[in-house]
Design a protein around this nucleic acid. Structure first.
Length: 204
DNA sequence: ATAAAGATCATT
DNA sequence: ATGATCTTTATG
């Protein structure tokens, strides 16, 4: 079942980020159907989060889509090389988004391998925000696309993730955000092999 | 007009 | 640890 627009419009981006674990992310692009199960996400909030591109009401050509109502794709180019895929959440005027950091390949493995220029299944097929977009065929042309449309959508029929299977940790690559870098807004499915990086372990 | 930085990845 | 690579953004 395709996730409804209302799913994305809730007020709590952190909760939505957690709830996205186990959902299936589908794309139908260039005539190829592919999908992965979401195993790692990060929440970004326009208010009270210096790591968010839209913090302090930053409204630019790039961030404007985050201010629209939930259920749209926010895609941007990172480090001049990688396309990162985010899901816009919350209602019109409140800029929140969830970065999809890793998926487990489910549908169209052959097509994904082809897009990634790989011959055999390996972890770097979809375990990373820049990798999964390439595998699923997502790029800048999908900026602003509706997630209830024909090209990119989510479905509910992945695994059911129990509360104790959800691990919260600090977000990756946001050291510049100062104290907000410490927020536990990265969510992963416990022990899933497709996580992009290991969870920091508490010291003895 | 210019410059700096970046929600990464693969390689050394 | 480091380099690749280039858009976006802020500033003058």
């Amino acid at each position: 079942m395709k996730l409804d627009r209302s799913f994305y419009q809730g007020p709590d981006v952190v909760k939505i980020s957690r709830d996205l674990l186990g959902k299936l992310l589908y794309t139908q692009i260039d005539g190829q159907l592919t999908a992965g199960m979401i195993v790692e996400t990060e929440a970004y909030s326009g208010r009270n989060d210096k790591a968010c591109h839209a913090h302090q009401n930053t409204y630019t050509k790039r961030t404007r889509i985050m201010y629209e109502s939930g259920g749209l794709a926010y895609v941007y180019l990172c480090y001049g090389i990688h396309h990162l895929f985010n899901i816009v959440t919350n209602v019109d005027g409140l800029a929140d988004a969830v970065l999809i950091r890793a998926v487990e390949p489910i549908v169209g493995i052959k097509e994904m391998l082809q897009r990634r220029n790989m011959t055999a299944m390996a972890k770097n097929l979809t375990a990373g925000p820049g990798l999964l977009t390439q595998a699923l065929g997502i790029n800048l042309s999908h900026y602003g696309e509706s997630l209830t449309g024909p090209a990119i959508w989510l479905q509910n029929d992945g695994i059911k993730v129990q509360e104790e299977q959800v691990i919260a940790s600090t977000r990756i690559g946001v050291a510049y955000a100062g104290e907000d870098a410490l927020l536990p807004w990265r969510f992963t499915i416990k022990d899933n092999p497709w996580i992009s990086r290991k969870i920091p372990q508490p010291k003895e």
